[in-house]
Structures are given as structure tokens and as C-alpha cells.
């Protein structure tokens, strides 16, 4: 649908424009260890991005204060204005850091519910760093076993390193090293514009919602591809045998 040449980031945007990093933290304590880990990851990523001569602005999204809005959106099927504002921040982000606490052997319900209410295409190809905190190192696989599959469904571009922090990790320099590695990976993805290039070139291949909140969502007739099989069928045409259906 787009005529973009491959691997060109958004042409509307100067190559050195400031980046936006949205940090989602699902902790409920104050201070919460999820927020603490989120802050460490954010600081390191910011430092590295600035080290590459790019400016970056940070938006923190704490889920605890909007927990009721999230629950309501699950029930009513649509987000309220407060939640919409958060969703729009995500849509506009160049990168995400997501940190979930682990309760009862899984990603927190609040954290999962937040992602449940997003459009399927909201974070397509967005560089994303998955992280989690837990009360025991025995939960270390929650990120790779639960958080990554969820982000894969949403087609987020996850960094290779997952950052997990159990209580004992806070006394270990290995945590700092993992934070550094993950932040380096996130920085590389964010500053090269690879996510924007993927979204730009492959956008029509993902599942979309007309009028949705995704940055590239179709909003008017000018955005819509009328050559698709279903659109041709809508305009009275016979479907091709090949590419209709689900």
C-alpha cells in the first residue's frame, strides 16, 4: 500500500529528530521494584541514546493509578479519555520498556489487562524491552514464557535480552550488566529506525482496525487500499480464488 523504498524510516521525520521512549511499569507498591527496574533501564537507555547524539524524551506510564480505568475498559470494551491519552503516547513512541511484576507464577493481571485493551496493531514493530521483577528467582522464565509471546502476538520488535530481577539480583553486578546489554540493544533498534522501516514496508500485511489508535491506522478513504480482495468484493466484484477468506 505504501510506495516507500525498503528500509526507509518515516520520511516525514528528520533523521535526528528527538526520540520518544515510553516506559510501562505494572508495579503497585511504592516504591515498587518494577518501577525501580524500569528507572534503571530508562536511565541506561537514555544515556546511550544521548551518547549517539540523539535527544530522547521519556514518558512514564504507571499502571496502578489507572487500574480502574483499565478494568472498566475490559468490561465496557472501550477506553476512557485518561486511558486513551496513554494509548496515544504508546502509539507515538519510538521504543517501549515494559516491566511487569510477577505474582502467582505469572505476569501481573493488571499488566496483561492493559495490553488486552490495545489495538492489535498499536505496537507493531516497535522496539520493546521486556522486563520483570519477582520475589523469587524461580520465576525467571515468566518473561520468555509469557511476556514475549504476548509481545509477539502484538508484533512488537523485542530486544534479544530479557531483564529479570529477583531480590538477590539487586546485590549483583550481573543485573547491571544485563541492564546495560538490554539498553544497548534497545538503543540500537531505536536509533536506526528499523522499527519504523518494518512498519512502513509491511504495514498492510498486519491485522488492522479502521479508525484505530495506531500511528499508521487508516482513518479516511485516502488511507484505505481499495485493491484488496475484500474491498473489490465490497464493490460488487467477484473475489479472486486465491486471496480471500480469513
Amino acid at each position: 500500500m505504501t510506495d516507500r523504498t525498503p528500509l526507509q524510516p518515516d520520511p516525514e521525520r528528520p533523521a535526528d529528530a528527538p526520540l520518544t521512549l515510553v516506559v510501562i511499569s505494572g508495579g503497585t507498591g511504592n516504591p515498587s521494584s518494577s518501577r525501580l527496574l524500569a528507572d534503571r533501564l530508562t536511565e541506561k537507555t537514555t544515556e546511550l541514546i544521548r551518547g549517539r547524539g540523539r535527544d530522547v524524551s521519556i514518558r512514564h506510564v504507571e499502571l496502578a493509578p489507572i487500574a480502574v480505568d483499565i478494568a472498566q475498559a475490559v468490561v465496557t470494551g472501550f477506553p476512557d479519555e485518561r486511558l486513551k491519552a496513554v494509548i496515544r503516547q504508546l502509539a507515538a513512541a519510538d521504543g517501549l520498556i515494559t516491566v511487569s511484576p510477577v505474582y502467582t507464577a505469572g505476569v501481573s493481571g493488571l499488566f496483561k489487562s492493559f495490553f488486552d485493551i490495545l489495538d492489535d496493531d498499536l505496537v507493531v514493530a516497535k522496539p520493546t524491552l521486556p522486563a520483570a521483577t519477582a520475589g523469587s528467582a524461580r520465576h525467571a522464565l515468566v518473561i520468555d514464557g509469557q511476556l514475549r509471546p504476548m509481545l509477539a502476538f502484538l508484533r512488537a520488535l523485542t530486544v534479544p535480552t530479557s531483564v529479570f530481577a529477583a531480590p538477590e539480583d539487586w546485590g549483583s553486578s550481573a543485573l547491571g550488566e544485563r541492564i546495560g546489554r538490554a539498553a544497548t540493544e534497545l538503543t540500537a533498534l531505536m536509533t536506526t529506525g528499523v522499527g519504523a522501516a518494518i512498519a512502513g514496508d509491511a504495514w498492510s500485511g498486519y491485522r488492522h482496525r479502521f479508525g484505530g489508535e495506531a500511528a499508521r491506522a487508516e482513518r479516511t478513504a485516502a488511507d484505505v487500499d481499495f485493491t484488496s480482495a475484500l474491498m473489490r468484493l465490497a464493490a460488487g466484484g467477484a473475489p479472486s480464488q486465491r486471496d480471500t477468506g480469513a
Binding site: G77, V224, F226, M231, L233, A234, A235, G236
Partner: peptide, 22 residues
Amino acid sequence: RTPEIAEQAAYYGNGFFANNVL
């Protein structure tokens, strides 16, 4: 939510109805 349905209504000159609830 479906633009294809709106397109079909428009193609035939039929009406389009938005339920405007929930």
C-alpha cells in the same frame, strides 16, 4: 468498525447504519 461494509453500502447507493450504542 468495518470499512468494507461501508464501501459496499456506498457502492450500491444503499443506506449505512451506525448503531451508536455501547
